[in-house]
Structure formats: structure tokens, C-alpha cells
């Protein structure tokens, strides 16, 4: 499930963000407890707790004392905005670099995108 080439807490946070963006976690829905999460993914609970704590810090999750953690009501919108901001730098730019390496012109790319509409 997790690889060991980057901190697992970061992978946990990214995974939950993807679940929220993809719709498998709804806003105001309760997420697993850190112990449930640790048992399910066979990881140390402190590692899981750190992933959840990061999401609370970022406002993606919120805590209800004594009950658990829930997806923030505005989480999906905020995550989408953040990802959209990074989309061109992180997705399009590497694609253009590769296009240049293999000699695909911007015109060809535009044509391809046009034909997919």
C-alpha cells in the first residue's frame, strides 16, 4: 500500500485528499480513527496520527471532541483550487518537456487536444 521512499504520513494525507477529490469521501463524513487506519494498513498508529494531524492543520479535516475526525465542509473546493493551481506546473510542463525531447511540436499537441473534444 505505502512505499518507503517518502514519509508515510505524507502518503496518507495525499491518499485522503485524493479520496475527497474523487468523491469516495464526502464532506462532513467521518474518516477512520487513527487506530482503525493503523490496523487496516498495518502501520504504526503514530505515523497515521501524524498524517491526520497534517490534514487538520491544513483545514481538510476537522475534529469533533470525543467523536472523531470529519471531512471539512469546504475541503473539496479548497483541494480542487490548490490542485488546479499546480496543474500547469506539475502536469503540463513535464509533458511539454517530454514533447520537446521527442520532437513533438506545440501545434501537434494542440491538434491532438482539439481532436479529443
Amino acid at each position: 500500500m505505502f512505499h518507503d521512499r517518502s514519509p508515510i504520513y505524507v502518503q496518507i494525507a495525499d491518499g485522503i485528499k485524493n479520496d475527497i477529490l474523487g468523491g469516495s469521501l464526502e464532506e462532513d463524513e467521518q474518516v477512520m480513527s487513527t487506530n482503525q487506519y493503523a490496523a487496516f494498513y498495518r502501520i504504526n498508529p503514530a505515523t497515521a496520527a501524524k498524517g491526520f494531524a497534517q490534514l487538520v492543520d491544513e483545514g481538510v479535516l476537522y475534529k469533533k471532541r470525543g467523536i472523531g475526525m470529519f471531512v471539512s465542509p469546504d475541503a473539496r473546493g479548497k483541494l480542487r483550487a490548490a490542485r488546479r493551481e499546480r496543474f500547469f506546473a506539475e502536469v503540463v510542463e513535464p509533458m511539454l518537456d517530454e514533447a520537446e525531447r521527442v520532437g513533438i511540436s506545440t501545434d501537434e499537441i494542440t491538434h491532438y487536444l482539439g481532436s479529443r473534444r
Partner: peptide, 8 residues
């Protein structure tokens, strides 16, 4: 150290 800070 924390295990997680050794990954990567």
C-alpha cells in the same frame, strides 16, 4: 530518529 523521517 522517527522512522518516517528516514523514508526518502
Amino acid at each position: 530518529d522517527e522512522t518516517d523521517s528516514l523514508r526518502g
